[in-house]
């Protein structure tokens, strides 16, 4: 899966007094099985960039092409199909539904795919066991710890077997040990051939050997920085 952004601009509330120019002429090319870290202070546009790469929003102008398919100006319906098939999204604040059990949360993406309950459960439990939180599957999301929430969020992102993993500041709410656990999971996924894009200003992430390339965002502009640190 090759991702190409060319001259991408993103405005929020364009033309209104509260207009925000969140991304400015962003050019970016990510090859298959590459792990890219997007570095930048808060408000620099990291989440916005990830949302465009993850097919959650479209750019205001410019082109976004994934595997030869144009994402820009694609109707919502097709963006959603793109997410279903290719994207595993890990939210900054995990965003599990607190009153659902962990395994129910993890299998949510499978419901609109028409996958039957037995098969859903099997896949959910398999994944939870692989991520070593099988013992928490029946707990409510509200009842588990931060590290467990992170693993559940990863499991949910992987349930539809996506080729691209997008993670928004995944270690911001984790201590060092849990952050390292997370990165070792990412390393396994990299070995499986996934493309991984992580937004983070955590040096633990940008300095990690799995990261092939680090990019720097400032005020919506993307620049390459010469390697970690």
């Amino acid at each position: 899966m090759k991702i190409e952004l060319t001259a991408v601009e993103k405005y929020y509330n364009r033309g209104a007094p509260n207009q925000v120019h969140a991304l400015r002429t962003v050019d970016l090319s990510i090859t298959s099985n590459e792990t890219v870290c997007i570095h930048g202070p808060s408000g620099s546009g990291k989440s916005t960039l990830l949302a465009i790469l993850g097919g959650i929003i479209g750019p205001t102008s410019g082109s976004a092409v994934v595997d030869g398919r144009k994402l820009a100006r694609l109707p919502d319906r097709f963006l959603t199909l793109y997410r279903q098939q290719h994207i595993g999204f890990i939210f900054q604040r995990f965003r599990l539904i607190p009153e659902l059990s962990v395994v129910e949360n993890v299998t949510l993406p499978l419901l609109p795919l028409g996958i039957r309950p037995a098969e859903r459960k099997r896949r959910g439990w398999d994944l939870l066991k692989r991520l070593e939180i099988g013992h928490r599957g029946d707990f409510l999301a509200a009842e588990i710890s931060g590290g467990e929430l992170q693993r559940a969020a990863v499991a949910r992102a992987l349930i539809n077997d996506p080729s691209i993993i997008v993670a928004d500041e995944p270690t911001a709410h984790l201590d060092t040990r849990l952050s390292e656990d997370f990165l070792s999971i990412m390393a396994e996924l990299k070995d499986l051939g996934k493309t991984i894009i992580i937004a983070s200003h955590d040096p633990l992430v940008s300095g990690n050997p799995i990261v092939d390339r680090c990019l720097y965002l400032r005020d919506g502009r993307l620049t390459a920085v010469p390697g970690p640190q």
């Binding site: 993850g54 959650i56 919502d76 319906r77 959603t80 997410r83 279903q84 999204f89 939210f91 965003r95 539904i97 949510l108 993406p109 419901l111 609109p112 795919l113 949910r156 539809n160």
Partner: peptide, 16 residues
């Protein structure tokens, strides 16, 4: 509202 937005990111269509 948050639940709906999460479901949509996870691949639920508006019609779902």
């Amino acid at each position: 509202q948050q639940e709906i937005a999460i479901l949509k990111v996870l691949g639920w269509q508006t019609e779902d």
